[in-house]
């Protein structure tokens, strides 16, 4: 599929993100070599990238279907809180299954509102963002317990939150999910139909594709991935709060867009989404390290997003001219 042709390579949706990561490494090596290359810096950035990346993979899938999901931060929060809270009664495996079922259920409900209710996903999932966060407060009464020691030692908790070959489990899980889901998107029926649905819904319909089902699957997958990101987080660090996932939806969407997902649908990359998460996390981390004033990095995430969009646009044009 991919030839070693420069312009074909540049036409990859994630080309901008790949260049961005290279540039980020170059710039930070130049201005803060010892800080950037220290094990704890890259380890911390990768750990957080794994969590944000897991969410942004789901977001990328929804954006490819020309929809958006603003509720992922709250779904991440509710799934994590559900895991911790239900663990007392259901045990670790039961709590994980129940929490993921809650996540998937929310994705399904939102998808039904978008498809059957014919309400734009922007509105439905904005409602979801607030409603799910409200649910967290009502359910927990504002304070959340932590996992008892024996549950932390449970093999399943260790599988999601421990380390393997000295690498944090979350990093391996997100990398694995990215590879598997990339195969699903680019090498399987579902992906072909998802890209068609997002690229040109009327055409997809005319070729007999049940675009409603494709979108439902995309929304459910997105919520499941957001929920799974919370399991990855809490299996590692179970001390949490009702603020779990606060504002993370914005970073997840930004990561997907930096990674080359077009909001006009049908184009995107899961690798790009994870690299986008890496760029956001890396830039934020280094800004704080270098002593940028507090709360600057929020503006900076916005700035990175705009620069990435302009960069991606000009890349597409450049590649188009060379073809």
């Amino acid at each position: 599929m991919i030839t070693l042709n420069t312009s074909a390579f540049a036409r990859r949706p994630d080309f901008g993100a790949i260049v961005g990561v290279i540039m980020m490494f170059a710039v930070f090596s130049l201005i803060d070599f010892s800080g950037w290359w220290s094990g704890s810096t890259l380890g911390n950035i990768l750990q957080f990238t794994a969590i944000l990346g897991c969410m942004s993979i789901g977001q990328a899938i929804v954006i490819m279907a020309k929809e958006i999901d603003l509720s992922v931060g709250s779904v991440y929060g509710l799934t994590g809180i559900a895991f911790i809270t239900l663990e007392a009664d259901l045990g670790v495996p039961g709590a994980i299954i129940a929490a993921m079922a809650i996540a998937g259920g929310i994705g399904f409900l939102q998808a039904m509102a978008v498809i059957k209710g014919k309400i734009p996903s922007m509105i439905v999932t904005l409602g979801g963002l607030f409603a799910v966060r409200g649910l967290i407060y009502v359910w927990t009464g504002g304070s959340v317990r932590s996992l008892p020691a024996e549950s932390r030692a449970h093999w399943l908790t260790q599988l999601f939150g421990g380390e393997l070959f000295g690498i944090e489990a979350a990093i391996l899980w997100t990398a694995g999910l990215m590879v598997v889901l990339s195969l699903v998107i680019w090498r399987m029926k579902f992906g072909n139909r998802l890209l068609a649905t997002g690229g040109d819904e009327n055409t997809a319909l005319s070729q007999g594709i049940r675009t409603d089902r494709v979108k439902i699957r995309a929304f459910v997958l997105c919520s499941l991935l957001a929920g799974f990101a919370a399991i990855l987080t809490l299996a590692d660090k179970p001390q949490t709060h009702v603020t779990l996932g606060d504002l993370m939806e914005l970073e997840a969407i930004a990561a997907a867009v930096i990674g080359g997902c077009l909001l006009s649908g049908g184009r995107g990359s899961l690798l790009g989404a994870v690299l986008g998460a890496f760029i956001i996390t890396g830039v934020r981390y280094e800004l704080i390290s270098l002593g940028a004033p507090a709360s600057w990095y929020i503006s900076f995430v916005g700035l990175v997003l705009i620069v990435a969009l302009i960069f991606n646009q000009s890349l597409i044009r450049w590649a188009g001219n060379r073809a």
Binding site: N192, L195, A196, G199, D200, N202, T203, Q207, G266, R267
Partner: peptide, 9 residues
Amino acid sequence: QSVGLCDNL
């Protein structure tokens, strides 16, 4: 005319 092929594929 306008339907039947997805430009992005």
